[in-house]
Structure formats: structure tokens, C-alpha cells
């Protein structure tokens, strides 16, 4: 009731989903394929649910061709390559996912390429590609080729690291919400998580362990120079100082009255 400035409900409604705002390119491939029999239209539907669709990675990124010109869309002259042969898949995905491919090629999976070993799509799917997660490692899927024990050991180790990274992320977020400068840490965590997911394909966990401990250590030290003098000990001293002063003033007053 007593006021100068007056506050009103926020005008705008929160724009929560940045993804919706991302511009979807016009792709002529979809216009034709969506109307065709299941064999040709299914990939479109699957793709629409994928992380590629979410980030605006269209058909031509993998299949080549010209998505802007319906007449020449599937012309080899425009780089159309159709369905890739299985042994070419790692190189195809590796066009963008450089780090992962390197680790994959060096791994047991990569070394058996063309000899019954899995390619990228074996685990990640071809059109409905999802954000990589530990859910991809399932006993059922791994046991199509070998006993799942080793895969499961890796999974549980990864799960531990993943939990640790999530804990670090949460801590960084808390620090940020208290006004601590965390840009550097956030960048390091981002690259660490990427390396972690890439490195999984080489099946070597040791490196990840080291780096996440480094970040953890940096986190402990993150209060910055500006944080000087805001620790709980200083707080106790400051509050105590004022309370003792109040007590002494009170004692003097009581004796004077």
C-alpha cells in the first residue's frame, strides 16, 4: 500500500524451448518421401524424432544430394550417395563426429569392421539417432555378438563417472547462482563431458578419471579473490563482535540507571 514503484506480473511468457525456435530448413526430400510407401517414408518419421532433426541436421548431411532443388535432389552430380554400404558408415558419421570415430577405429569394435563387428548404427540407430546415453548399452544388444559381462563392467564404471560429472555440474550451477564466476569451469566440464563420451568408444576410463579429479580440485578452490572475508568464520567474528558490544553497552546502561 505504501509504495513508489509498482510491480506487475511479467509481461512475456517464458521462452523455454530454444529448440522450437531453431529454424528448420526447407527440405524437398521430405515433401516427396512422406507421401511414399512405408519403406521410403518411414525414415522421415524416424528422423523427425532424432537429435539430428532437433539440431537441424537434414537428410543431405548423410545422404548427399540437393535438398533445395526437387528436380536434382537425387542427382549424383549434386553429391547424392543414397544408402551407404556398411563399411563406409564410420567414415560417413566421422565426417562430423571426428573424435569419436578415432576412438572407435582403435577399439575392438572398429578393428572388426567388415568382419561382423558393429558400426555406428548398430548401437545408435540410423534415422532415429538419439542423444548418446548409457541406456544404449543394454545386455540384450551387446549379447547379440558377445557375452555382455565386459560391456556391463564398462557401463557401471561409466555410470559412476557420469554421476560424478552430474554432481560437478550441479555444484557449478549452485556456485553460479551465488554469483561466483564459473565460465572457465563450465567450459572445462563441457569439453570433459564430450571427451568422456568420445573416449568411451576406446573403452579407456583412466584418462577421464584424472581430468574429472582436476576439475573437482579446481571447484574446491573456486571462491575467487572476491570471496575473501565472506567465510563463516569471519561471519561468526563479525556477529560476535556486535553482540559483545551490545552486551557491554547494556551492562553500562544497567549500572547507570
Amino acid at each position: 500500500m505504501r509504495c513508489l514503484g509498482v510491480i506487475l506480473l511479467a509481461l512475456g511468457i517464458l521462452i523455454t524451448s530454444q529448440a522450437d525456435a531453431a529454424v528448420k530448413p526447407v527440405i524437398v526430400c521430405i515433401q516427396c518421401h512422406i507421401a511414399q510407401p512405408t519403406k521410403f517414408s518411414q525414415p522421415v518419421k524416424l528422423w523427425e524424432t532424432s537429435i539430428h532433426a532437433e539440431h537441424g541436421v537434414g537428410c543431405n548431411a548423410c545422404h548427399g544430394g540437393d535438398p533445395m532443388d526437387s528436380a536434382q535432389a537425387m542427382s549424383p552430380a549434386r553429391g547424392f550417395r543414397g544408402v551407404p554400404i556398411p563399411t563406409a558408415i564410420p567414415a560417413l558419421c566421422g565426417g562430423c563426429h571426428v573424435g569419436v570415430t578415432k576412438h572407435y577405429t582403435d577399439s575392438a569394435h572398429g578393428r572388426t569392421l567388415g568382419k561382423g563387428g558393429p558400426t555406428c548404427v548398430t548401437c545408435h540407430g540410423s534415422h532415429d539417432i538419439q542423444k548418446a546415453s548409457l541406456d544404449l548399452i543394454s545386455k540384450k544388444k551387446c549379447s547379440t555378438c558377445h557375452t555382455p559381462e565386459k560391456a556391463w563392467l564398462i557401463r557401471s564404471t561409466m555410470l559412476k563417472r557420469d554421476t560424478m560429472l552430474n554432481a560437478i555440474e550441479k555444484k557449478i550451477k549452485t556456485l553460479r547462482s551465488q554469483g561466483v564466476e564459473t565460465d572457465q569451469l563450465e567450459k572445462r566440464l563441457f569439453s570433459l563431458r564430450n571427451r568422456f563420451h568420445a573416449m568411451f568408444h576406446s573403452l579407456d576410463i583412466k584418462l577421464i578419471l584424472q581430468e574429472s579429479e582436476h576439475i573437482q580440485a579446481a571447484l574446491e578452490k573456486t571462491s575467487g579473490a572476491g570471496g575473501v572475508g565472506t567465510g563463516p568464520l569471519t561471519g561468526v567474528v563479525a556477529v560476535g563482535w556486535a553482540l559483545i558490544a551490545a552486551l557491554l553497552f547494556y551492562l553500562i546502561k544497567k549500572n547507570l540507571d
Binding site: G179, E181, A225, G226, V228, G229, T230
Partner: peptide, 16 residues
């Protein structure tokens, strides 16, 4: 303000 809070010694205290 972020600089005061993170880089200047005692800056966080003064700001708070």
C-alpha cells in the same frame, strides 16, 4: 559487478 564479487578482494563482502 561480477568482477567486484569475484576478483576484488573483499568485493563480495562490500557488495553484499
Amino acid at each position: 559487478v561480477s568482477f567486484i564479487m569475484n576478483e576484488i578482494p573483499l568485493g563480495r563482502l562490500v557488495r553484499l
